[in-house]
Design a protein around this nucleic acid. Structure first.
Lengths: 224, 224
DNA sequence: GTCTATATCCTGATAGAC
DNA sequence: GTCTATCAGGATATAGAC
């Protein structure tokens, strides 16, 4: 209906909002701050996006829709090549991780990723709804593919492991500064190939670990 | 200096704030909402906590200080028992995970965990500072213990894996509703023993995976 | 489509009586 | 320690001229 590229005002608003939301948080960013950073008028937000909530939604949609489409295209390609046989686990994980890591190469991608980590934990109804809209279907697709590659896992076990996997991935994609600080500069989050290999190896090992093994170790109960 | 138990107003404020912060988010919760839920006067927040920021800090400190102390006690006990030899990996992970899972059994613990997930991604300076204060030291302790058990890992590799581990753990501890919804009710986050075993097995497998393996799989480049 | 001006309401914080 | 009343400012959203 609307051609985004023909709306410089709209794009300027999205850019400014993305930047400010990433730096200060969504709630802490006023529309005044957005419009003045964008160099446009305050009223233009409500004109183009109806409300602050609409602006927030658009900020996320603009990046996440292409990102998830890219992921799905990669998975489609893998499934076509596999032609019914199981796909290598690492390849599935790569199809999920690589588009996100690539996005983080550009400066806009970097700032968006900081913001992305917050969508999972922010409680606003509007964002939670958006999250389900955006990730419900694609998660089912990827979970199913992983399940086909690891058929020895029960449905419950699979879901749990995908959950852990998402935790590791979200934390890694979103949280660039913390790993740098925590490792004292030793780890370099901008080394895409390194992150990709390490993250995928870690997650693949977790997903493949023998199912239903009871913990054997000395359980640390109360002291003494 | 101050004896918390003797300050019913202070505790009522902390309880109400914790509840509201968890449900709506910190920024979205006004001091008026807190005080009226607590049944105390608006001015009492500034009297007892100096500012909204002080209240937020206290909400997190009240739960995280005992939690991390418990983790450290468990790790201390393990290191004493091991007496210089390597500690079993699963036992180290258990010392980190179990206190958090136990906390989540009580209703207050449950609501706090929802809030806890947010401390990592919220951008406020005050919270980021608190996060470093609370987790800087203890993370070094646990990382070092894991490194001693997995001496074949380089320092860099270890840091990355601990980072992935934290992602999985934070996401699991904090995000109770999403796994339930995502799995269609199949996974039960209140089953502490199940979560504990699954999470620890997953993370342990990731941590132990052979280091420096290059990814071999067909890299999903562009389609066709 | 863009702008100014403004309506309406809520925010955190405080002064000062009790 | 607790209360009332209020300050000074910022929030979203909109009405209406251009």
């Amino acid at each position: 209906m609307e051609r985004q590229a023909l709306h410089p005002t709209k794009d300027r608003l999205l850019d400014a909002a993305e930047e400010l939301f990433s730096d200060r948080g969504i709630d802490a960013t006023s529309l005044r701050a957005v419009t003045s950073a964008a160099g446009v008028n305050l009223a233009s937000v409500n004109y183009h996006f109806e409300s602050k909530d609409g602006l927030v939604r658009s900020v996320f949609l603009r990046r996440l829709e292409p990102l998830n489409n890219e992921r799905l295209e990669l998975l489609d390609a893998l499934e076509i090549t596999a032609a019914g046989t199981a796909i290598e686990l690492e390849a599935i994980l790569d199809a999920w991780v690589l588009p996100a890591l690539r996005m983080g190469q550009s400066p806009e991608g970097k700032r968006f990723k900081r913001l992305l980590g917050r969508i999972y934990s922010e409680p606003g109804d509007s964002l939670q709804t958006l999250l389900r809209e955006l990730f419900g279907e694609i998660l089912q697709r990827f979970s199913a593919a992983i399940g086909r590659t690891l058929p020895e896992l029960s449905a419950e076990e699979l879901m749990w492991r995908v959950h852990f996997m998402l935790g590791a991935m979200i934390h890694t994609v979103a949280d660039q500064p913390s790993i740098r600080a925590f490792s004292g500069g030793l780890c370099d989050p901008s080394d895409i190939e390194g992150v990709r290999r390490r993250l995928i190896d870690f997650v693949a090992a977790g997903l493949r670990s023998p199912p239903a093994k009871k913990t054997t170790g000395q359980s640390p109960g109360t002291r003494k």
